[in-house]
């Protein structure tokens, strides 16, 4: 077994993972909070307002990082899915299932902030814009993975089915995105493309964006650890190491004679 797989197996054993995740979790939360506050301060108060869109463009500091996260998390889930399907790493099943609701959250935030941004910019909350539409389809893909997982009584079987679906979804994601972009150009040529200027963005706007991106990654990490710990405890509830975590007073009630 190569060192990487060995590491996976070691830190992938549920008790070890539970311990490690518990140790990392407060640090991740703290860092996410610190970077989030700095990023929001810079973005909302210090950065200049957009000369075209005015103050409303500041929603970008939430919207863009969550949009990136929504796709990153799906890719992360597919990666966990590969580990789960090929090497049967139990922890990666747990991580996949724990990541999905966070992904739904980021996708929902992206859609909501997008439509709030759209109101002053386009004059409507919902525009059938290529990005918005493919983000919506991504949300449905997340729902599909979660729905499939919860339909199974056997958690591990559900997790493996969800792994396969996450993989199929990841392969299709670029195709869906491309097709939606094509569809959009077929039907309307004139929607404002907000992203054309990204590379030419001023440093005063770029820095808050990057810091917010980092903060959202850390937030994901922290949230994932917390969810995965609960999931691991739930999955392994019959095991000795979980029983050992219980306070001594909470023993099983003895059967009355």
């Amino acid at each position: 077994m190569n060192p990487l797989m060995l590491w996976f197996h070691k830190s992938g054993s549920p008790p070890e993972f539970y311990r490690l995740a518990g140790r990392f979790q407060p640090w991740l939360w703290a860092l996410a909070l610190i970077f989030g506050v700095i990023g929001l301060y810079l973005g909302l108060l210090r950065a200049p307002a957009d000369y075209l869109q005015g103050e409303s463009a500041r929603i970008m500091y939430i919207h863009v990082p969550s949009a990136w996260m929504s796709m990153f998390i799906f890719a992360f889930m597919a990666f966990c899915g590969v580990l789960a399907l090929v090497w049967h790493v139990k922890i990666s099943e747990v991580l996949l299932i724990s990541a999905a609701p966070i992904g739904v959250g980021f996708t929902a935030v992206t859609l909501i902030t997008g439509s709030l941004w759209g109101r002053p910019t386009w004059g409507t909350y919902w525009e059938w814009d290529a990005r918005m539409t493919s983000e919506l389809v991504l949300l449905f893909l997340y729902f599909g993975v979660l729905g499939l997982f919860h339909a199974f009584d056997d958690r591990r079987k559900g997790a493996r089915a969800a792994s396969l679906l996450a993989l199929i979804g990841l392969v299709n994601l670029p195709i869906i995105h491309y097709s939606v972009t094509w569809w959009n150009s077929l039907h309307q040529g004139s929607s404002i493309n907000l992203m054309t200027g990204t590379s030419a963005i001023d440093a005063s706007m770029l820095w808050p964006l990057l810091i917010m991106t980092l903060a959202s990654k850390l937030w994901f990490g922290a949230s994932l650890m917390q969810r995965a710990r609960v999931e691991v405890i739930d999955l392994e509830s019959g095991k000795d190491w979980v029983q050992a975590l219980l306070p001594p007073t909470a023993e099983k009630p003895k059967p009355q004679p």
Binding site: F140, F143, G144, G147, Y178, S179, W182, W183
Partner: peptide, 14 residues
Amino acid sequence: SLIVLPLAVPALIF
């Protein structure tokens, strides 16, 4: 349907 429909989006669009 929840699983298939998002995957069928490209076929429908093209």
